[in-house]
Lab assay of single mutants.
Amino acid sequence: MAAAAAAGAGPEMVRGQVFDVGPRYTNLSYIGEGAYGMVCSAYDNVNKVRVAIKKISPFEHQTYCQRTLREIKILLRFRHENIIGINDIIRAPTIEQMKDVYIVQDLMETDLYKLLKTQHLSNDHICYFLYQILRGLKYIHSANVLHRDLKPSNLLLNTTCDLKICDFGLARVADPDHDHTGFLTEYVATRWYRAPEIMLNSKGYTKSIDIWSVGCILAEMLSNRPIFPGKHYLDQLNHILGILGSPSQEDLNCIINLKARNYLLSLPHKNKVPWNRLFPNADSKALDLLDKMLTFNPHKRIEVEQALAHPYLEQYYDPSDEPIAEAPFKFDMELDDLPKEKLKELIFEETARFQPGYRS
């Protein structure tokens, strides 16, 4: 834990890192770190609560700039109880001085990944967590956004079992017609939660990839272990087919990539493993919904509104309290091709509203 900075004593240090967030945020305490930044909790002297502050230093890398800009653009436009918001952003007053960006968010005690390492969940908890994931996802999908990296560590939890989806750095506007060349190379989302079509096709992607990830998360809540822990690309596919069985001819016809289709045709026939054999203690309604989410063919996979209306979630289902976005989200430009200098300018502009004396 960093010592509390005395008023006016300059930035606090946390594990050798400068955290320049005073005077409003003090009493910093280390939480963890990701690929390009550290997260601390801090005391907000204005709202009198502890908050989470993520320090991001992305400006050396085009990919990190892209992810940072995506996350900020999306989260500043989203407003939903099951999606983490941005409360404040701290950065230098000029673009030349801006080396880091500090993002202030609600402090959540833990995440689903940490929880599943230590606790076996009751059916009631599984049901409530799944409902909140789908409630947040309904809003995301209504904005025409794909999260693309749903996994237990991106689901934040607090002691009252509130759940918030975080990390929109890989999110995209849904565009089933656009052929994202190089899709697989830039697709760094965790393999275990990846839909089979991501490994088999490169053309376009749809909201059904997020539903697949939610199915993987439900299976993990039922058993405290990942359902498809593939060691590499082909191993991942083999794990999936080992449980779902061989795809039907109709399902194979959806695979545009001939090499991928021929690979699947070359494999020995596998039978589907019954879900109640894998999860003998699970609620039968939970397994019915799991089956509809972990469907090989993305066109037959359940959609988020149908999933919310499934009998497993009937005690929570309330369409009048499951809000959607006001308007579909649009990125003005494809960020993939922009140089990091341009992305830095866009991050600077996007964060201006939090600067003292800002006038829109």
Rank of each mutant, 00 (worst) to 15 (best):
L265V: 07
C166A: 09
M38N: 15
T68K: 11
A9Q: 06
Y316K: 06
R50V: 14
S284R: 08
I126G: 06
K151Q: 14
E350I: 01
E314G: 02
I83H: 04
H178I: 08
I95F: 15
L308Y: 02
S208P: 03
Y128E: 00
V21H: 06
Q62I: 13
P328L: 12
I86A: 00
R24N: 05
K330H: 02
K48F: 11
M98N: 02
Q132P: 11
L264G: 00
R79F: 02
F279K: 05
Y131D: 00
R225V: 07
Q236H: 13
E81A: 08
D175Q: 06
A2D: 11
S153W: 06
R148A: 07
V46Y: 09
L241M: 14
K114G: 12
S41N: 14
P323G: 07
P274Y: 05
E197C: 05
F329L: 14
L338G: 03
I209C: 10
A174H: 06
E303G: 00
L75A: 02
G242Q: 08
L134T: 08
P356E: 10
K344Y: 09
Y358A: 05
Y233W: 04
F354Q: 08
P339Q: 15
F296L: 15
D283R: 10
A352L: 06
G357M: 09
N276E: 09
Y233D: 12
S29R: 14
M98T: 00
C161R: 01
G242F: 09
I256R: 11
R79T: 06
S208M: 05
N276C: 03
R225Y: 01
P226T: 14
K292G: 07
E12S: 12
D318Y: 13
C161A: 07
N45T: 12
G230Q: 02
L289R: 07
R148N: 11
P298S: 12
A52G: 13
F348P: 05
D175H: 10
V49P: 13
W275A: 01
S208T: 14
G37D: 15
N154I: 15
L237E: 08
A7E: 06
F279Y: 14
K300M: 14
E350F: 04
F78T: 07
Q66C: 12
Q315Y: 08
L290H: 05
G215R: 11
C65F: 14
E81G: 13
Y205M: 06
I217G: 08
F19S: 04
R148Y: 08
P280H: 14
D251N: 13
T94E: 08
M38I: 15
R148I: 11
S266T: 02
P280K: 04
D291V: 14
K114C: 08
S122A: 13
P323M: 06
S57P: 10
P176N: 01
G10A: 09
D100Y: 14
T26C: 11
C254Y: 13
A286C: 07
I347M: 10
K207A: 09
T295N: 14
V101C: 07
E12H: 06
E60N: 13
D332S: 05
R225Q: 03
I211W: 07
L76D: 01
G169N: 13
K285Q: 11
A327T: 11
L69I: 05
Q236R: 00
E81S: 05
G16T: 08
G10D: 04
L289H: 01
L184G: 10
L335H: 13
V188G: 13
F354S: 01
S248H: 02
F168G: 03
S122N: 14
E109G: 00
A327Q: 06
Y30C: 04
L237R: 08
L234D: 03
A143G: 09
F348G: 04
A9N: 01
L222E: 09
T110A: 13
C166N: 11
R70I: 01
H299R: 09
F348H: 03
K73W: 10
V304N: 06
L134F: 03
L264M: 15
A2S: 13
S284M: 06
E345K: 14
D283Q: 08
V39F: 14
T181E: 06
C216K: 04
A3V: 13
L112F: 07
K272M: 02
E341P: 12
G242V: 04
I198V: 12
F183V: 14
V104W: 04
H180Q: 14
R172D: 07
S153F: 09
L289G: 07
S142R: 01
Q132F: 06
A286Q: 06
L234V: 11
V46L: 12
E326V: 14
K207V: 06
K259T: 12
S248Y: 14
C127L: 10
D175M: 10
K285M: 10
I240P: 07
R67T: 12
L346G: 13
H299M: 06
K73Y: 12
P247D: 09
S360F: 11
F354V: 09
E250Y: 06
N238F: 11
L343A: 09
K270I: 05
N45M: 05
L69A: 10
P339H: 08
Y128G: 05
Y30T: 02
G169I: 03
K138T: 02
L150Y: 06
H80I: 02
S29D: 04
D167K: 07
F59R: 15
E322F: 06
H299Y: 14
P229Y: 02
L184Q: 14
I56L: 13
N297A: 03
K342M: 07
P226I: 02
R172Y: 03
R191K: 06
Y25V: 02
M13E: 08
N262D: 01
S320K: 10
E109R: 04
Q355L: 15
H147N: 13
I243W: 00
Y316E: 02
I126H: 08
A3C: 05
Y113N: 15
F228K: 00
G10P: 02
D100K: 02
A2V: 10
S208C: 09
T185D: 12
Y64F: 14
T160K: 12
T295V: 04
K272P: 09
E314L: 10
H80V: 06
E305D: 15
V49F: 10
N45D: 07
Y30R: 02
I140C: 02
L130E: 02
V14Q: 02
L200T: 05
I89T: 00
A3Y: 08
L121I: 04
C216P: 02
I89M: 11
H269D: 10
K114N: 15
S360Y: 15
L267A: 04
I256K: 11
G32Y: 02
K259P: 10
N158Q: 09
L137R: 11
Y263I: 10
P23N: 04
G204S: 10
R359W: 15
A35W: 02
N238I: 15
Y317E: 00
E326M: 05
I240W: 02
L200Q: 14
A4S: 13
P152K: 07
R301W: 03
D175G: 00
C166Y: 11
K203N: 14
F348C: 11
R77H: 04
N123T: 14
I72P: 00
R50Q: 10
Y187D: 13
D149V: 14
S213W: 04
Y64K: 15
A219K: 10
L163Q: 15
P58Q: 13
L76R: 00
W212L: 14
K259Q: 12
D106C: 01
W212D: 06
T190F: 05
E326R: 00
T185S: 15
Y317P: 00
P23L: 11
A7N: 03
N123H: 06
D332H: 08
Q315T: 02
Y263W: 03
K48S: 08
F354T: 07
G230W: 05
S41F: 11
K117F: 07
Y316R: 03
P339G: 05
I90R: 00
R70V: 05
L76Y: 01
E303L: 00
D167P: 06
I95E: 04
A282W: 07
G32N: 05
Q249C: 08
T26Y: 08
S266G: 14
R67Y: 13
D251S: 09
K207N: 13
L157R: 10
G136A: 05
A92I: 04
S29N: 12
D88S: 00
E186S: 04
V273H: 06
G22S: 06
K138F: 02
C127N: 13
N257I: 15
L218W: 08
K73S: 07
G34V: 14
I86C: 03
L170S: 04
L244A: 01
A189Y: 01
Q97F: 14
I74Q: 03
D288K: 09
A282N: 01
T110D: 05
K203Y: 11
N276G: 08
Q306H: 15
H125K: 06
H310R: 03
D235E: 14
A174Q: 12
A174T: 13
N201D: 04
N297T: 15
A7L: 10
P268C: 07
T295S: 15
D332K: 12
C161F: 13
I165Y: 08
Q355M: 07
L335N: 07
L130T: 05
W212P: 12
H299T: 13
I72Y: 01
P58E: 07
F331G: 00
Q315C: 05
A309H: 02
W275C: 15
S266W: 03
I83D: 00
N47H: 10
A325F: 00
I198L: 10
T190W: 10
